[in-house]
């Protein structure tokens, strides 16, 4: 079997001791539908994410995978069905939305760092203004996480002075500073050069090793194979197939999945 697209290999052995799936529900989505105008983007989505799960969502572009995870912190509104995050249902209640958002970290394809603030200020802003953490303490936390993503020496620089891979690691650190219970990744490596993809994936693997609940939209099938405990394949706004990575890649059940996998395998 050929190597899948973007199968960035991680040279070290992954420590699986804390990568355990709990029985507590982190996210529950029930009979959820979403339309853009008259276009039905998400159709009858049902899924449950348990604490500690590492889920990779893949699918062709326009399949609704990004929209799905953006619904989980209400960057997109759903029109029917229910989304419950950490016990809080997402409705139009702004207080609930802000609470869910501060507990759910999000990493974007284009990093979305705040260009007018230094790296350190990017990381301390939300803890100070949302969590009301004292500045000193917020800075200590920020330096801790910046060290974790291996760029503490860049703390006083501005985002524009960093490489794409460094910016994305800062974006991960910025989310972690809010001590989130769940992390969402929306194509975190799609805007990066090949040599920078690895440093970001390494950071994400380290996060998985600490038992973080993660939902990752990505084309990095290597990451899916090594880290995910479940792979979800979406097409035309629907969940077509989900399985553990082993059987998902070796014995895809649906024709669409087979086609999708064969395409990204052939392209490599």
């Amino acid at each position: 079997m050929a190597e899948p697209l973007g199968d960035t290999t991680v040279d070290r052995a992954i420590d699986r001791s804390r990568m355990t799936v709990g029985s507590e529900e982190a996210i529950r989505i029930a009979a959820m539908n979403k339309w853009y105008g008259s276009f039905h983007v998400l159709r009858d989505i049902n899924m449950t994410v348990f604490r500690g799960e590492r889920i990779v969502v893949c699918g062709p572009s326009g399949s609704g995978k990004s929209t799905l995870i953006r619904c989980i912190n209400r960057l997109e509104e759903h029109q029917s069905g229910r989304i419950t995050v950490d016990g809080t249902e997402l409705t139009s209640d702004l207080k609930n939305i802000d609470r869910v958002r501060s507990d759910v970290g999000m990493v974007f394809q284009h990093f979305n760092l705040f260009p007018h603030l230094t790296i350190l200020e990017n990381c301390t802003l939300a803890p100070i203004w949302v969590r009301k953490v004292p500045r000193r303490e917020a800075e200590e936390t920020a330096m801790h996480f910046l060290a974790k993503v291996k760029i503490p020496e860049q703390a006083q620089k501005y985002p524009g002075q960093l490489s794409g891979g460094q910016q994305q690691r800062v974006a991960i650190a910025r989310s972690l500073c809010m001590k989130p219970k769940i992390m969402l990744f929306d194509e975190p490596t799609s805007a990066l050069d090949p040599e920078m993809i690895k440093e970001v994936l390494d950071t994400m693997i380290a996060l998985a090793e600490e038992g973080m609940t993660m939902l990752v939209v990505t084309h990095e099938m290597g990451f899916a194979r090594q880290v995910a405990n479940r792979v979800i394949f979406m097409d035309q706004g629907q969940i077509v197939e989900q399985n553990e990575p082993g059987p998902f890649f070796s014995h895809p059940q649906s024709e669409r999945t087979k086609l999708f996998l064969s395409q990204i395998l052939r392209d490599h």
């Binding site: 960057l75 702004l94 958002r101 501060s102 970290g105 974007f108 284009h110 979305n112 989310s175």
Partner: peptide
């Protein structure tokens, strides 16, 4: 200001005025 800036601020839990 790109939409991503609003989204990043929202995703961190900042309210409208902040």
């Amino acid at each position: 200001i790109p939409r991503g800036q609003y989204e990043a601020a929202d995703s961190l839990g900042l309210d409208y005025w902040k």
